[in-house]
Design a protein around this nucleic acid. Structure first.
Lengths: 239, 239
DNA sequence: ACAAAAGTGTTACCGTTACACCCATGC
DNA sequence: GCATGGGTGTAACGGTAACACTTTTGT
């Protein structure tokens, strides 16, 4: 950045918009959290939850703040997505507003539906929408959401982000259901999925058994970060 | 973004910082373009080329503008990297400046060294630095550069970005050298690299031969985007 | 006993790896 | 002729995909 520039620089308000995914393994649904806009512009449209960044606040903190006002959750994964910053994204950018631009830094979050408790005190009707039934959203939020969905799917395949979202202890079936819900039934069969993951050597059987209705009890496993570390930079594929 | 907020919002200047890589296949070097800062802050430090975003200008346009003021090039690849936006990135953010923040949207660009003609009229000494010999840079630019380098290496493996940078027609050796320069000698042997790529079916032999000193003449190949299209979303690895 | 859930085993197939080898040109 | 760069072939190996099968529980 060169400090001496002509005077036609743009002034920005920076917002953070969040694509908050939740995985409902019970009903095999992938959900996105939307809120209803109450004000101009795009009043009464659904939109991604977001906020404008405050003084002294990092972008990530702003993303967390938005999230924590809507849901209460213990385990989550959060990652910056992309920055959408073209002019005319926002109708509030009037010519008479001295070139104020609205720039959106988008984040995507991943939580478990079972664990994510919606804080319903909000006046803007926060609601989970199935990914297949997203309505037309305010601003360029459909584009942001699509981008986030792509990123989620690819990231799941080569990064251990699941283990930030699942509880400490989980069964291999929990893990499999998680993947299935996001990637679809056909990504791998259970037996091969099991073998591949166990062979990688960062999942440890705690020996503790847990039973889920009828059927043989399942072992609870734990993700061991140190064992995963050496695989970090390799183009390892989980699927 | 909620339009009604308390008054402690941050005001931003948005800058674009570019990690411009060039690949010198002749000498097997990966280079980064740096400029010398002439003003406060970080005066006389080397830094990534960047600019502040102007009114009516998209982020990407701002990135192109910076690039085109420094080099003249035909084929290039450009992609948004990450947005660094924490407070206190920039010493110009004084408490008395009413909370003006400097936010940096970083881009990475990839060109061929042979083709990139440096515009030396610039007063800020634009220079190519070998990736292994980057000095301490201004701001958080070392961090940005590292991030860009990681992205470059991983992107190269699963995305056909090379073909945006190479000329229309190229030999398979050109292609191999390109990969070797960025990923190192050991990523694959030439014979296997050849077979793998040709089997994918998006490289076409034009039949035209080109000779390079002694040795058998090489065929010129062309990248066929339509043939690649179906492979677009698969987790295909080139290496 | 039987269904349900968890976990093991088997086999054909395909891609990767690490080479050795052949081809065409300049000097 | 021989060095140089370009291109082909092959055989061992290991991972993947699709499936059958066994084990352990609840009812």
């Amino acid at each position: 950045m060169n400090p001496i520039e002509p005077i036609e620089l743009a002034d920005f308000k920076v917002g953070v918009d969040n694509v908050i995914f939740s995985v409902d393994t019970q009903q095999n649904r992938l959900l996105v959290l939307l809120i209803k806009r109450l004000n101009y512009p795009f009043s009464s449209y659904w939109s991604l939850p977001g906020t404008l960044v405050r003084q002294g606040e990092t972008l990530e903190k702003a993303a967390y703040r938005t999230l924590s006002e809507l849901i209460r959750v213990n385990n989550l994964y959060l990652e910056q997505l992309y920055t959408f910053g073209g002019p005319n994204r926002d109708p509030r950018e009037l010519p008479e507003s001295f070139g104020v631009r609205y720039l959106s830094v988008s984040y995507f979050a991943l939580v478990r539906y079972e664990e994510a408790e919606l804080i319903q005190k909000q006046s803007n009707f926060p609601s989970w929408y199935m990914i297949e039934k997203i309505p037309q959203l305010a601003f360029d939020h459909n584009q942001i959401l699509d981008y986030g969905y792509q990123r989620l799917k690819s990231k799941l395949k080569y990064s251990p982000i699941v283990f930030d979202v699942l509880p400490e202890l989980f069964t291999l079936n929990d893990l499999y259901q998680f993947y299935t819900t996001i990637l679809g039934e056909n990504f791998s069969d259970y037996s091969n999925f099991r073998n591949k993951l166990l062979k990688l050597g960062f999942l440890f059987d705690t020996g503790v058994k847990v039973t889920k209705g009828a059927g043989r009890p399942a072992s609870l496993y734990r993700f061991d970060a140190p064992s995963f570390a050496p695989l970090k930079d390799q183009p390892l594929l989980f699927i």
